[in-house]
Simulated assay, not measured.
Amino acid sequence: MQTVEPFTRIYQRACERKGGALALEALLSNCASAEDIAVIPDNLLLGELTKKVFQSGFVWRVVRQKWPGFCDVFFDFNIEKILLMSDEMLEEKARDVRIIRNANKVFTVRHNALMIHDLALEHGSFARFIANWPTENIIGLWAYLKQHGARLGGNTGPYALRAIGKDTFILSSDVEAYLRATKVFDGGINSKRSLAQIQQQFNVWQQQSNRSLQQISQIIAFSVGDNYVGMLQ
């Protein structure tokens, strides 16, 4: 596989692997509208960022199981209350058995609350800032979260955006392998040059398919790798 395929070919291969078009479509998920994202309370968005930070490099299931404890410990992620927390209070929270006791990640809650607070002052809400960001430059939003937030680099920021409904592709291992094999990029996957090349190609596929970035990346993942759901082997 040496050249980039038109999206119709990728889609056809995904259909073959998943047992047909109907089976494939049933596996795809939809992103939210900008209007729906814009009205999400900022405390819920901080919660999603925090969840993805704690899930990074950890067992996601355990974080989900402990999530009610996280909400109790961090006041349902009330931005104003969290910004008033001192280092000593955060250190105490990091010892609370109701959450995953990782002090470095606990401190990100206040850091990301401050980012959200500052953006809310400028844009009316963090949700509105996210909703209005153009998806044709979604990597720019990734970069912003990485630069101004805490522990939101790599796939953590994109996974958080996906969780709140923002249209974004995810550079999963399957997607990365396909993009590298077809020479969409040839450097480090997180370099500015590589991400720009990947964004450009996703924009082309979006024009070809009229689908969301989210569904395009899902279809790519389903078109490669050992995932023959719904097929006789």
Rank of each mutant, 00 (worst) to 15 (best):
E91Y: 10
D76C: 02
D72I: 03
C71E: 07
F74E: 05
E80F: 06
K66W: 02
L84I: 00
N78S: 15
Q65W: 10
Q65H: 13
D87Q: 12
L90G: 08
C71L: 02
F75C: 09
L84S: 04
C71P: 00
K93W: 02
P68E: 04
S86I: 05
V63K: 01
E80A: 14
L90Y: 10
I82P: 04
F74H: 09
K81Q: 15
P68R: 09
C71Y: 01
K93V: 10
C71D: 00
K93F: 07
C71V: 00
K93Q: 12
L90Q: 13
D72N: 12
E91G: 14
F77E: 00
D76A: 03
F77S: 01
I79K: 03
C71Q: 11
F70A: 00
I79C: 04
V73L: 15
D87I: 02
F75A: 11
D72W: 07
I82G: 04
Q65G: 14
D87Y: 08
E88T: 10
K81F: 03
M85D: 07
K93Y: 10
L90T: 05
F70N: 03
R64Y: 14
E80G: 09
V62G: 03
M85G: 08
F77M: 01
D72C: 12
F70Y: 15
K66P: 05
Q65Y: 12
K93S: 12
D72K: 14
V63I: 15
L83V: 08
D72A: 14
N78Y: 12
M89K: 11
P68M: 04
S86V: 06
F77L: 02
K93G: 02
E91W: 05
N78K: 13
E80V: 09
L84R: 01
V62E: 03
Q65V: 11
D76I: 00
F74R: 07
D72G: 02
C71H: 01
F74V: 12
K81L: 12
E92V: 05
R64K: 11
K93M: 10
K93L: 03
E92L: 08
V63P: 09
